[in-house]
Amino acid sequence: MSKLRVTVNHNKCVGSQLCVQFLPAVFKLNEKGQSVIITTKEIDQQSIISTAEQCPQCAIKVLDADTGEVFFPPAELEF
């Protein structure tokens, strides 16, 4: 399986905490109440993508760490 890179765009994150609810091992809140990554080690691609989908802001991006291919979100969902 490809190595994942996960980013949270702080120009988008509104601190809904949905990602923290779904994957508390991967996401936590910083002091501003926005989401940050703890670690993506040992997390499977499907869980991370289905969590990224929950974000109302499409603030979470999931990419292939080597090729840069974007697994989520598709370009047409970004705003």
Binding site: N11, K12, V14, G15, S16, Q17, G33, P56, F79
Partner: peptide
């Protein structure tokens, strides 16, 4: 851009229907 407005609020109560409204 960027435009991190608060029209749908922020935090846990951010509007459930935000994407639908958009």
């Amino acid at each position: 851009d960027p435009n991190l407005h608060v029209a749908f609020a922020h935090g846990i109560h951010v509007c459930l229907g935000a994407s639908l409204a958009r």
